[in-house]
Design a protein around this nucleic acid. Sequence first.
DNA 1: TTAGGGTTAG
Length: 708
Amino acid sequence: MFPRSTVFRALHQWRSNAAGPPSLPLPPEPSSFATAVRSSASLRVLKPLHAAVLRHHPDDLVLSVALACRYSQLGLPRAGLSLLSPAAADPSLLPAGDTFFWNLLVRGLVESGAHDRALALYRQMREPRRGAQPNNFTFPPVLKACSYLGDFEEGVKVHDDAAELGYDSDIFVRNSLIAMYGKSGALDTAKRLFDEMPDRSVVTWTAMIGAFAHNGHPEDALALFLQMLEERVRPNRATFLTVMPCVIRCHDADDLHKLIIRYHLESEVIVQNAIMGMYSRCGKIEQAQKLFDGIVEKDLASWSSMIEAYARADMFEEAMKLFRNMKLLELVPDRVTLLGVTRGCSNSTVASLRHARLIHGFAIRSLLIEDLMVETAVIDSYVRRGSLSSARRIFDQMREKNLVTWSTMISGYGMHGRGVEALELFNRMKCLMKPDHITFVSVLSACSHAGLIVEGWQCFNSMTTEFGIVARAEHYACMVDLLGRAGQLEKAREFIEKMPIKPDSSVWGSLLGACRIHPDANITELAATSLFELDPQNSGRYILLSNIYTSLGKIEEAHSIRVLMRKRGVKKIAGYTVIELNNKLYKFLVGDCSNLQSDLIYRELERLMDRIKEAGYVPNTNFALHDVEEETKVKSLYMHSEKLAIVFGLINTRPESTIRIHKNLRVCGDCHTATKFISKVTKRKIVMRDSRRFHHFSDGECSCGDYW
DNA sequence: TTAGGGTTAG
């Protein structure tokens, strides 16, 4: 069917070194091989075909590209590359002027993941006399390579080439252009190209929906999807896979799921995995679980998606269990699977430093630690499980670090109140790469957690002047925190008033947080009014406000806030503290008596409270329930989960060891004071993670400087 | 021989 050419002479050379392929009962024509390759269902079928191609048609470019594409489709993109290498290395072997062959090789390289080489080949193709004139078949794979490499300058040049040669209105080229611009962040250009098109296919619509999705406009993506349906364009698998990540509302998820069933696409594993992800993002973990259980032939992504879903739902134990189960089934977790459990480990209250080490160990054994993303996730999990030193050790030994790695480590120092080290790293990082808006959140929050006021302002100013980054609400929130810490509440208020963007709940939350340490009736009122408008369901804010009113002596107001909270149906999140002992996690609620050692814990607690009182501790009943007698208030303070967990730790660990606890909410002010005294009288180091940061207690002091 | 798509670290 295709002429045997001499372009792959080099392959003969290679073949003579290869082991003899098995003979296949196939007619010798290339066309029958091509059909067999394209329809091969698995690598087990493809590999003998590959061997047979080497034997019978080693220099047939059409067959080689078909093989390369099939390898890629079956999950081994690089496996077919060797077939293409001789011609790719020496394009002079390609028939000059024969666009068909050049196109084939460009496409083969792209499919095999050799995007850089595909682009290089395209450039050679454009050389006069040596190359060949690109056509409508040339541009789609070339544009895909530009997208993959993030080389959008090249993408624009390729667009210019296509326009010059009159192919930019070809629907295939146009669709590729929309996808390329969508991925490059040039949403306007993508949209203009889309709008200009007289005829659009389902691929055109999908590419544009994808462009919105990629650029953080899920609402527009969904709206375009609806418009597409209204115009009676039939969505397919790719369309649904593009739309699903944009869904965050439960009813949208249900509607989309029904639509998928109507189009008979629900039985494909790839679609089922995406539906699981969609339900998980909508907070419907049971639905995701039901789907997962129902998938007959789960692939690796099914497992990863479910693990990720558990991680997102803060169900670390389940994520870990699934991770173990898949290993028992001899499934090999990949980077995505590992990223899922690592994230779960970072965020959960029921994960510990031991889990971080377990996961790190697996990452080392499986060699996945060599993946930059995995390594960064492991650093983050060490940070969040309380071991800055382990995190830093990995960080220092990394061969390659990117923006995320640096930001992770900087924010890690910030979370632990080590602002100086955070700034030191930030200064080193600035010499290597340009920080982004998230890096600045890390640095500014590090400054605020450590009380580095001057440095914080310098960073905030340099963000715009030096790096051209426009401050977002979260940056302003850090600055309000900084001012608040310094007790400059009036300045903080003025700062908010002058903000060029609308302050969000994080900004007002910072201001209210400042009032906890520096009570001010007017500012409290102002922050509370705005907060209850912007974020009326946040229970923590009501409690904070009620406590501030109590400390201002406004008992009635404090009470009315609690009433308001009940009236609005705001559910109070139950506070609890977790501690790990001998590989087992123990959870304490306020007044908890479920622990087997409860009697001992309460006896010991009584003694300890007496000891710290002698050392100067005065119970702060602002944090206790306000509608009871003073003595009862003090008793209820003693029963806080933080104190119970600490005493349990003191009883059951060696005297020199550090006690590590994790509180799901912000640490209570009285527990914070008490813990400082406990660290002094017992000479113990206590590391407490709360919902905002880490507190390192030692010898009567806390690393947060009493502001958090 | 052509286009669009899933799980992924701060």
